[in-house]
Design a protein around this nucleic acid. Sequence first.
DNA 1: TCGATGGATTTGTACCAACGAATGGATGAT
DNA 2: ATCATCCATTCGTTGGTACAAATCCATCGA
Lengths: 251, 251
Amino acid sequence: MKVARSSLYQQVASDLRRAIYSGDLGPGAQLPTEAHLQDKYGVSRNTVRLALGELVNEGLVTRAPRRGTVVRDRRPLLMYPQRELAPQPRGEVREAFAYAVSQEGREPSQTIEVQIVSPVEEIASRLELGDADLAVVRRRLRFVDGQPYNTNDSYFPLALVQTSEIARPGDIARGANRVLEELGHKQVRVVDDIMARMPNQEEAERLQLELGTPVVVYIRVGYDRADTPVRVAVSVLPADKHLIRYELGLR
Amino acid sequence: MKVARSSLYQQVASDLRRAIYSGDLGPGAQLPTEAHLQDKYGVSRNTVRLALGELVNEGLVTRAPRRGTVVRDRRPLLMYPQRELAPQPRGEVREAFAYAVSQEGREPSQTIEVQIVSPVEEIASRLELGDADLAVVRRRLRFVDGQPYNTNDSYFPLALVQTSEIARPGDIARGANRVLEELGHKQVRVVDDIMARMPNQEEAERLQLELGTPVVVYIRVGYDRADTPVRVAVSVLPADKHLIRYELGLR
DNA sequence: TCGATGGATTTGTACCAACGAATGGATGAT
DNA sequence: ATCATCCATTCGTTGGTACAAATCCATCGA
């Protein structure tokens, strides 16, 4: 059943990959131990590990000592970036993330850290800030059922928000967007940039990512009626847990 | 300058990573050879290769015999999914992709393969087709300046399009959307799903992906005025070459 | 001058060996 | 019965060696 590929380890990887994609090895299923695979294919342990390493990098399996190599189960949670700007349901005082997650019967939580920073170029240019201008950043690490889920760092021009609760530590139950609104800078237009890449070390640790999990980087710039950028939100979303959905109507 | 990490190869990887992120090693820069790194860090070649393997998997570098290990340069091309549905500029007869690419002064091209298939469940359910219903699929592999760029497989209900040129092989200069329009099934609403993952073998080959490059999978379902799904487009976009942008106005 | 050839360099694949680290499960003590 | 401890198993890391494959570059020949 083997395919004649270029190298031994790729043959082994390819064989196992097929078993996974075909469903012979479903989520949670144990792969044979390294020793077993050595025997089965008549190759060295290094070669087996090279093959398994491929699967890990493709996000198909996880390894741990003694637990062995198991097929990963990845089902994303749906995310509607549009709804974050839409009015919340009547009487709903929580912000969009908490609301969306609890809608799915799961338990949202988050940590918040508020800082005043001199933003990096990428942020500064989107906020149309000068070199000397400062920004307030609210760094959030969000959890679902206690597991790290994503990060969301929102930047606001300091000049705009320094008197508001956005610049003060702590939760804003009704959401920062509503505070901006109260400050007379309601967002009327947003630009969303979406890209994907492999996470860096810091992201991998913070989000407890398994190897082979890419992240989607999601940057939203919000503009007020005067077309001034008032918020830049950078979200880092582990790809295995997120599905982003847009619904567009045409006029 | 080393950070005390858990293992030797991670120390080496971390060291090199920092050099890349800091810009000491810019795009195109050569990393030291494996032999040189062995000496420098006093570790075995296995360890050096493990470290370099990490960087490859993170999409930071590429390796080739004799050419050495070099820092990758990745700059994405901007993509506006919304514009594919907006009317093309006056007199523009090309479809959205060709137009967008040529706007950037680059040369678009594509191959097309048309088939009638029994779609897999994922497609069938989105097209609201029964088990026996067939679909026309137009599989496109797109190139920019001769390099593979992305794939776009568009599915149409056979019953809807079998008399039109959509079901026949070959290019449709004015785009399939216009043909749908002429058939009385103009799309008035679309739902876009966006997710990311590591590519499978087939995708990696077809798109000539370097190791460590995730793909963004982009699925658009288009609905006509009767809210019947008339088109499902599945795009596979190499993450290092694509940036997706949405612009949303609020009413 | 240009092209073919061949050697040297650098990464790719594969093997072996050894010990460390983590953990599931059995064993034993309370 | 419950909990702590220990052991065997399995993956993690690191060292070593050897040869293959690809390619740059210098040399040689037409």
